[in-house]
Design a protein around this nucleic acid. Sequence first.
DNA 1: TGTTTGACCACGG
DNA 2: GCCGTGGCCAAAC
Length: 117
Amino acid sequence: MNKAQPTYFDLVYAVVKAVPKGRITTYGAIADFLALGASRMVGWALNHSFAQDGVPAHRVVNRKGELSGRHHFPTPTLMQELLEAEGVEIKEDKVVQFKSLFWHPVEDLGEDWEYKD
DNA sequence: TGTTTGACCACGG
DNA sequence: GCCGTGGCCAAAC
């Protein structure tokens, strides 16, 4: 039973999965929420998130609201397609009303939220 | 085993 | 308001 301790990847995956449909979050928000202190690892984790299932990485954008990760998707337009499919308007590879659609993990999950298998 | 990179962010000039 | 630099942690070479 030894269950491997949750790593950055697991935490990031869990949070990203918790992102409501039609909403977006940023790497910094996740990093801050998880108190990682390293937003870079969030992107790195998402890079491998494709190996995971049910991880809407397309809902994660950089702090500018740009779809920085679109280039890492199977297709550069897939990220935008997915977001638009959820009602998120994209303009020039940037999220429209990004500030309004911005979602803080702490809002729904709470500061005391922790990774659960 | 040490160095480099990585879907970044915050801060300073 | 834009540009440059540092920092942060982990995996790959």
